[in-house]
Write a protein that binds this DNA or RNA. Structure first.
Lengths: 306, 306
DNA sequence: ACCATTCTCTGACTAGAGTCAGAGAATGGA
DNA sequence: TCCATTCTCTGACTCTAGTCAGAGAATGGT
């Protein structure tokens, strides 16, 4: 079976999956079922949560028109499910709170979706249930992985800064010796900005969940720096995706050798570098926090000769 | 972790799966995406198919109001996507056919959902893709399994008859010697009807996909007869479910021993009987098509003593 | 004190998705 | 031939889920 055929078959299977699942799962989001309340109102009720929430926050989260939200709130208010009152600090803002009845209704929505989930499991025997749940977790993990997007950003971008802060914090915790940025060979932001380099962040639902930088010194091998992946985005193949992305970007610039250094405590990273075709080489710099140095020869991009 | 906790965790996982999947898969049925056409019209276009279809058939399949379908068809007709004309045989009935443009539109819907499926796979590497597709197949299979319902019916019910016909046809094909019902010890319908027995059919989306009968001779062990599962419903754990159901029903009637006979060519069934706790015993009847005889002692139902 | 901005609300719309009652033509069986 | 039934269509509704423009109050910065 050639590549195109594999793709055909896989796409067909994904489509069958979509049909079966949407049919069985009840099409819409699982939280809003079984009550006679319209979905919009149910979503609002859900998103308000037990602690209450500002109207503008609701609007933003659910991406609804302000007039529409206002009307929905009015109807929930009339049904006695929420109260809406001015915020103390900023009296333009209004805060929504669930009443006792509202909390009950929200709990009912919750148990409705428990029931749906239960009804999927009920006809199965224990071993089938375990297999279903495992397969669902696998599908979910991989669909999440396929939702992660990579984008090149400026190293000063807030998302980049968030990732770098998280990266340093994590190094501090993991390294036996702690981590002091002042002692390390850190590239300044300019080195990770075109034309001297680049910086890529990964996002999941708009939130930054990882980063990787590439230094492109002219006439020398390119160097991967500051690769970090948020705990919740691990085990999604994101490290491999970063490497592939940086390798492709480097190849485009005519780079033929990629290198990087790493600390001995970062086992997952070390395993990744090995399996991605990097060879361990003698130290090529005097980074005090590095114990391993890697190098990989890369192929020129498609459609290029030499 | 006790049973209730396992259930809690499993239900929570199923709900998470539902959230992720409906969000990522685009909520509605995967066929009707990306065109500016309303869903109703798109469904109609899809369901009409290349061969054309009667209006009433469309109405039935999609479970839509007749007035509504009529209006949708009028709009598709105005857009030049379908023609609607009277059926020759019954001039009340009208038949919908796709025009050239309609076929093109339908194909576009099709490729739209290919694209959706492709976009789920695209960010993944080949091994992740394979894992995703496998896990989807597993989820789909088990969700299908959980959609199958069991119902006790009269052996003369059309669904029962359909299953029995299929069962005999299959025996004829599989047995080395063929199968002639006249030579076999077949219970008559009365023996599979209360109080002398019972008959259960399995259905998937309303269609019969399996059956099993139970003879309940007074003062003798109960006997399982005519268990059959349609090819498309195999490997869903349905055989085990039938056995569990019949065993429970027999136990309710005070039966303490269950037995059955089977042909040597039915390997899957033989393996099932072994793994469900049946012991092979000497022949207890002279069924000419049987090579193996099984027996199982069963426990009295819950809440019963003795 | 002024003014642009922010936040919420109201009113006036639109489109999709569907329900319900009944009209009119065709059909099939007594 | 008559009449109940079947099939489709039309007209008159409803409800959900929005969008858009603008009004009015509160706020923050100058």
């Amino acid at each position: 079976m050639d590549e195109a055929q594999v793709e055909r078959v896989q796409i067909e299977r994904v489509r069958r999956f979509n049909r079966t699942v949407t049919e069985r799962v009840g099409a819409l989001n699982d939280r809003y079922l079984g009550r006679e309340r319209p979905i919009g109102a149910a979503r609002l009720l859900w998103e308000t949560g037990d602690g209450g929430r500002d109207v503008r926050e609701l609007r933003e989260r659910l991406e609804l028109d302000s007039g529409y939200v206002s009307r929905l709130l009015r109807s929930l208010e009339n049904d006695g499910l929420v109260t809406v009152e001015r915020q103390q600090r900023d009296r333009r803002v209004r805060t929504v709170r669930l009443t006792e009845a509202g909390r009950a209704e929200r709990a009912a929505l919750d148990s409705g979706s428990d029931e749906l989930a239960g009804s999927l499991l009920e006809p199965l025997n224990p071993s089938q249930r375990a297999r279903l749940v495992d397969a669902m977790a696998e599908v979910e993990r991989l669909l999440t992985a396929s939702t992660v997007t990579l984008e090149t950003v400026d190293p000063d971008h807030p998302d980049a800064e968030y990732c770098l802060r998280s990266y340093f914090t994590e190094l501090q915790e993991r390294f036996d010796s702690g981590f002091d940025p002042a002692l390390s060979l850190l590239p300044d932001a300019g080195e990770l900005r075109l034309p001297r380099g680049l910086f890529v962040v990964a996002r999941l639902h708009g939130e930054p969940v990882g980063c990787a930088g590439l230094k492109l010194p002219s006439g020398a091998p390119a160097e991967i720096k500051r690769m970090w992946i948020a705990p919740r985005a691990r085990r999604l193949g994101l490290g491999r995706r970063f490497l592939a992305e940086l390798e492709a970007r480097a190849a485009e610039k005519g780079v033929r050798v990629l290198r990087l250094d790493t600390n001995k405590t970062l086992d997952a990273a070390i395993a990744l570098y090995h399996s991605a075709g990097f060879q361990e080489v003698p130290a090529f710099n005097d980074e005090p926090y590095a114990h391993h140095w890697f190098e990989k020869r890369i192929a020129p991009p498609h459609g290029t000769t030499g």
